[in-house]
Nucleic acid binder design. Sequence first.
DNA 1: GCGTTTTTTTGACTTACGTCAAAAATGATG
DNA 2: CATCATTTTTGACGTAAGTCAAAAAAACGC
Lengths: 186, 186
Amino acid sequence: MDFIHYLESVIKVSGILKEELHKLTKERIVKKGQLIIRNGDRCADLFFVEQGLLRGYYYNDDKEITNWFAQEGEFATCFYSFISKAASYENIEALDDSRLLQLPYCSLQDVYIRYPETERIGRVLTESYYIKLEERLLSLRFTTAKERYDNLLVKNPALLQGAQLGHIASYLGITQETLSRIRAKH
Amino acid sequence: MDFIHYLESVIKVSGILKEELHKLTKERIVKKGQLIIRNGDRCADLFFVEQGLLRGYYYNDDKEITNWFAQEGEFATCFYSFISKAASYENIEALDDSRLLQLPYCSLQDVYIRYPETERIGRVLTESYYIKLEERLLSLRFTTAKERYDNLLVKNPALLQGAQLGHIASYLGITQETLSRIRAKH
DNA sequence: GCGTTTTTTTGACTTACGTCAAAAATGATG
DNA sequence: CATCATTTTTGACGTAAGTCAAAAAAACGC
């Protein structure tokens, strides 16, 4: 799924807008292990993963906590920083050699103003991310560590290949040790 | 803070749009204890609390879990149901005699289409609710029960008047018993 | 004001998961 | 392929908060 196709699934994208977006958007190739956003910096770009895998994480009490993964065909950004223009508390790291599209905040705002119909994309996307976050909160609060792991195993087995145990564990809200014990019992 | 003033803080609201919104919006008076949305029903309205206090809650394992409170000047809806048109898993209850403004989903969609600049309100509002939810998740995950209570005490003392202990407790992600013990130690 | 229901508190006990530490497995590098 | 670093597993023990149950306090209806 490429960027323009994704947008076309949400709104009609005119030829002019397509061209405009193509101009504003920059392709970026990153290597496995590369840090794309460092916490403390402002995250002023919206990324779209064309190929590869990204991880958003932060530190809590000196421990790395993975907040999200972005797989091919998904958006990625430090949402809080991107929206509020404040410094990011998250880091973004490439877990694989990846090809990204990069759209600066100011370009996006510009598009919003010049093509008001794009506000709809922003709204619909944000709504869908809200729903996902709500589901995540419910799952962290009311399901056991094992249920969350089993659920991920079913819903996103690809992730368990690309990311390592510690990343998955903190993403699921548990320690590495606990996840290892869960796996040991099949 | 009334509805129109709130909107005006986000975008310019033309006279025509104001009138339009006034026409589409219905005032609704509800009594303390009244159920406004029942889970299983679709929540097809966006509410704005002009006066009073609402509570959104759901059941998990036969236990009531308070998901949010909406105080004066705030919006309230079963977000998931409102966005997706699916049945709501939440209930909405008035914790006080309240005066609400009620805007139906279809009217809102209509406004979005006829006044594209309002998409911006939808987007900005959703963004701000996303950030709040993110903060909520972090707080549930990384702070102790006592820290969460102390924090609420500072940030929203009014809530501790209007709502009862059980509501507050499940909102903070703890049991009533635990919250009672926290309070006992000043 | 008195009895009934609802809400809050207190107590004894349980539990899922965390912590700390060390061993085993895996993988990268010259 | 031997070495060193990183990742995963295993073990012993700790703890914040949950559960169940019953008493105390507050709120409500008549």
